[in-house]
Design a protein around this nucleic acid. Sequence first.
RNA 1: GCUCCCGUAGUUCAACGGAUAGAACGCGGGAUUGCGGAUCCCGUAAUCGAGGUUCGAUUCCUCGCGGGAGCACCA
Length: 547
Amino acid sequence: MIQEDLIHKISSALKALGIDGVEPMIEFPGDLTHGDFATNVALAGAKVAGTTPRELAEKLVAELGEIEGVEKVNIAGPGFINFILSREYFSKKIQGVGETWGRGEKLKGKNILVEYAQPNLFKPFHIGHLLNTAVGESLSRVSQFSGATVRNISYPSDISLGVAKAIWSILKNKKEDDLTIDAMGEAYVDGTKQYEESEEAKKEINAIHTALHTAEDGDAWRVYQKGRALNVEYFNHITARLGSSFDHMFFESESGVIGKEIVMRHTPEVFQESEGAIIFKGEDYGLHTRVFLTSQGLPVYEAKDIGLLSLKFEKYNPDLSIVVTDVEQKQYFEVVKKAASLINKTWGDNSLYWQHGRLRFAGGKVSSRYGNVPLAEDLLEKVISIVSEKAKEEDPAVSEKVALASLKYAFLRGGSGKNIVFDFEKSVAVEGDSGPYLQYSYVRARGVLDKVKNANDGSFNVPKEVSNVERLLTRFPSVVARSADEYEPHYITTYLTELASAFNSWYAQEKVIGSKYEAYYLQVVRAFAHTMKNGLWLLGIEAPEKM
RNA sequence: GCUCCCGUAGUUCAACGGAUAGAACGCGGGAUUGCGGAUCCCGUAAUCGAGGUUCGAUUCCUCGCGGGAGCACCA
């Protein structure tokens, strides 16, 4: 790798000049006219060397001498040393791009678990789940692409007061024989309303809740079993539609029992009693203090998460367990993680609780069948209709791919942790900075490649100048690596948009078919297509052949 | 009250402590017999405030202002 080579050379040059304490590093200049790689060591080392940055830069350049693959080295600005790579370097790289382009081995041998798409069974799958699924899916794919063995898991909430509310309403309205997802959604809304309004309903619902916890046989249990199966099926259906699939599901009903047992076993060393409940004193660690077992002895979310860790590590023993959640749960999971690490150090060390931002709505409203949170499928249908209208797309399969691209791109465009403002008129973009823009660039590239059937004979005419597309293309593996390192899919999003823009500009300027560089240009287009396809895959976006 | 996160063009997002703060949408202009106009090109416009650290700060630290979130028996 030329990066390592450069760092090594810079390091030797610094040593030769007797400069200590300066980290030899290189970076991609944001501006391509500044070269392919740049180093700031002359700026950082000038003080130690007792000279000006530019003078030091000159000495360093003299010391570096010839470097394989580097055509030119120049000093610019306050004292940056810029490296411009040779024509041959790029031509060779471009020709080497294949289907596995961008894959890395950094995580080779690592066993990673990604937990996401957490549904609440009996409650509808809404837009927040859509966001969570998009982020989780991308993190999963990026890790896999970097060489890890990845398993996707989901942790549905299958037993709660909310579930009891839905069941109560189903029983009350005798809906159990023709139970559907829609009926359950309505039942949930109805049950929630009655729980607030009627004392009697509240009593009955609480009784159902207890019966569920004790797995007591009866009408409620029967409806519960039936509804749960239906919900799991629905979950699999919708996540498959989004392009995700799961290796395993751990249920809250399982984790609760185990969690309670673990918490009790670690009281009073880790947990302690307070006002009848079992708590973890997070404040001793600068965190929140939270209840793990209620005074009735029931496990709450906290204890269930401890139980889940036990289940996960027993089944998979992962090197890393990533849990993707909403940013609002950040401080909550800090407490869980701290408590977990006191019970079992590995649970803490090998766990990463990763948060994405929260969706905020702006502009136009979307009708939601239940409550005021848009449902995933309603939203998707709406986006599909916007897409097919805007682009006059007639093939529904294509519209679906484009709509999903638009949504996922909007979700993965920004850095994690920040809230995402979702505006119907703007977020459902098919132009410019958008998922469909990337897909469209890919489709155009495929179009050219399909037009030329005969394989090249290997004799290339290569232009003297290196285009920006070529320069950007060679950066792809580094971008993927960084994305995996920092768990940030948005580096890929940003990069692909930059790349597509460079490609489109190049494509508008250069004639490919019939040019004297045709054979080589086709290689560039081919390399672009591979990169785009792999990059989109990492974002969970399909690259259509037509649109 | 305590804790955490955020503050960049009119709007939505970028910028691993570096060079002239990048895009997109919007707005105003323009392009193509050359392969897909969901494209391309030109213009317009921004770092919340005050200190500090640093050769260098949108980025790190402190304070202030503004916004969001979390803080015991819900999930």
